[in-house]
């Protein structure tokens, strides 16, 4: 039994890490990762929502009629997202301004609904919350990684601190829109290469 919990907890960090293994939730992964800080903030906000929504949905899974389940899930998720939005405006105003409309858009992030439908609807609350937490943290790590790469090579800074010598010419391409697609595409390719080298089966479709 304890094994299931540990397996679930670690699955989100490598076996199912979004958005690389689980190709869901690409929009925020592309849009807000101009800097490491934005990526981390967005990732943590999503982690909060997916943990609690998984818990709530799993607790209610026997009450919600299956015909209206998607609508019910969306209402639960939207409520949680509104809470995050208000909390962020109160405590991290600057970050919430930078993330802009992408905070309310967590509602339509496929990861949240995907985990609700794929995991929370079939498993008990505690296990579902662990799954949500692990997927959420995995997502936060991925977004921070993408944000770090784009910020370091695109602006020469990391979390706002200069890390590369002044002689380094920042590749502005990476912080602009096309750079996001290319960075993520290359990271996916590296991940595929690593999986093939380890002889793992492809999970990603």
């Amino acid at each position: 039994m304890a094994n299931t919990y540990i397996d679930t907890l670690t699955a989100g960090l490598w076996k199912r890490i979004p958005p690389f293994r689980l190709v869901l939730g690409l929009c925020p992964a592309l849009a807000v990762t101009m800097s490491a800080e934005n990526g981390l903030g967005m990732g943590l906000a999503t982690a909060f929502v997916v943990t609690l929504s998984n818990g709530a949905i799993s607790a209610l899974r026997n009450v919600i009629p299956s015909k209206v389940r998607i609508a019910a899930y969306i209402v639960i998720i939207a409520t949680l997202v509104s809470i995050v939005e208000i909390l962020m405006k109160a405590f991290f105003f600057q970050l919430s301004q930078q993330l802009g409309i992408y905070i309310p858009l967590i509602v339509v992030n496929c990861i949240v609904l995907g985990r609700a439908e794929g995991f929370a609807a079939k498993n008990p609350p505690l296990l579902s919350m662990i799954d949500g937490f692990s997927i959420g943290i995995g997502y936060a790590l991925s977004l921070t990684l993408v944000g770090s790469l784009r910020e370091i090579f695109g602006a020469g800074t990391w979390f706002g601190i200069a890390v590369l010598p002044a002689s380094f010419e920042p590749m502005t391409f990476l912080v602009s829109a096309p750079g996001a697609f290319v960075t993520l595409g290359i990271l996916l390719a590296v991940q595929n290469l690593f999986s093939r080298w380890r002889g793992e089966k492809f999970i990603q479709g």
């Binding site: 096309p178 996001a180 697609f181 290319v182 595409g185 290359i186 996916l188 595929n192 990603q204």
Partner: peptide
């Protein structure tokens, strides 16, 4: 390694 989503994203980048 680039097949599938990976090359699609890079293509989208060039289009952007």
């Amino acid at each position: 390694s680039l097949q599938g989503t990976s090359i699609a994203l890079i293509t989208a980048g060039i289009m952007a």
